[in-house]
Design a protein around this nucleic acid. Sequence first.
DNA 1: TCGATCATGTAACAGGTTACATGATTTT
DNA 2: AAAATCATGTAACCTGTTACATGATCGA
Lengths: 182, 182
Amino acid sequence: MALRFALLAALYEEPLTGYDLTLKFKTRLANVWNASHQQIYKELGKLHEEGLVSVEDIPQQGKPDKRLYRINETGEAALSDWVNTAHNRPPTRDPLLVKLFAGGLLDRDKLAHELADTRQIWREQLAYYRSVEAQYFTSRAEMPAHFRFQHLALRRGILGMESNLQWLGEVEAMLADLAAGV
Amino acid sequence: MALRFALLAALYEEPLTGYDLTLKFKTRLANVWNASHQQIYKELGKLHEEGLVSVEDIPQQGKPDKRLYRINETGEAALSDWVNTAHNRPPTRDPLLVKLFAGGLLDRDKLAHELADTRQIWREQLAYYRSVEAQYFTSRAEMPAHFRFQHLALRRGILGMESNLQWLGEVEAMLADLAAGV
DNA sequence: TCGATCATGTAACAGGTTACATGATTTT
DNA sequence: AAAATCATGTAACCTGTTACATGATCGA
C-alpha cells in the first residue's frame, strides 16, 4: 500500500515518467523508499486506472513513447489523507546481523571482506547524501516548510549512515582484537 | 530465503519451539530479523521436511503438543555456508520518510503525535537493548568469540536507536521552530 | 564492438501480512 | 468476567524479486 504513496509523493514535486521515478528512487529517495522499475510501472498503471494520476504520452523515435505521469486532485487528496494517518514502524530484517548472531560459525576473513564492501557502500551513500545537503539545503535564507521537511528526510539518511559507519568501526576493532588474540 | 537462516541461527543456540522462536524474534532478535508466528511455523515445517532440523513432540494437557525443533548437522552445514557468503544490503522502506518527503501536505499536529509515539517506541527499544547488554555483555572476563559477535549485533541495535532518537530531536526542533514562526 | 543509457513492459515465483480457527490456564 | 498467555496451525491476499523481452543511440 505504501509504494503508491511514495510514487504520489515523488509526483507531488513534479510530473515524471516511470523511468525518471526509477532513477529518483535510486538516488534522492534511496534512504526513503525502494522499488524496482517493474513494480513502478505496474503501480503507475493502477494509479492511472484508479484516476489518481493523469498521463501524457510523448512520442519518441527509436524508443518507446514516454509516458509522463502527473498527480491530480484526487491523487493529492489521497496522498494528503495517507501522510496524515499514523503507521507502524517497519520491522527490521538484516542478514548481516543474522550472521553475527550465528557468530561461532563465521569465517573471519570472509566476514572482513563483506564488512569492507559494506563500508564502501555506506561511505558512498553518506558522501552522496552530504553532497545533496550541500547543494540544496544550506542556503542561509529561510526555506519553505516543504523543503525543510525534505531536508529532515535527508538528515535521517546522513545520521543513519554515520551511525552505521561508527558501528562498523566497533565491529572491525573487535575483529582486529580477535586476530591479535585479545 | 533468509528467514530460514534466521531460524537456524536461533536454533544454533538451543532447541526451541515455534512459540519460543516467535518470542525470541520479538525480543532479543528484534533488531536482527522479524517474522510472524504463521511464517515461523510454516518455515519450520519446510526445514523439517528438508531434513535440516529434527523435531521432538512433547505431549501436554489442554494445549497442543509442543514441537521442539533442534538443528542437525545438515542444518548446521547449510547455516555455515549461508553465513559465509556475502549478501546485498536490504533496501530501505520507511513510510515516515515518505511523509516528510511530501512535507507540504503535512498536518503538523498529527505529525507531532506520530513522532511522539515513535519516540516512545524507540526509547523502549533502546532501554531494552541496554538492559540486555548490561545483563549479558558486561562481564570483565573474556567472552568466547560467539558471544562477542552476538554482542556486536546488539550494539547495532543500540547505536541505531541512539541515532534514531538524535534524529527525532532534530525533527522536533524544526517543528518547534515552525510553530514559533522561525 | 561492447557495454551503458534510455524507455517500456509481462509473467512466474517467493516472501510477508492479515484474517480465521481452537481451547485450556492464568492473571487482572 | 474479561483479557492475556500458552501453543499450534490453514488460507487468502498483497508485495516484492527475478527472469524475460525489445530495440535505438551513444560513449569507451
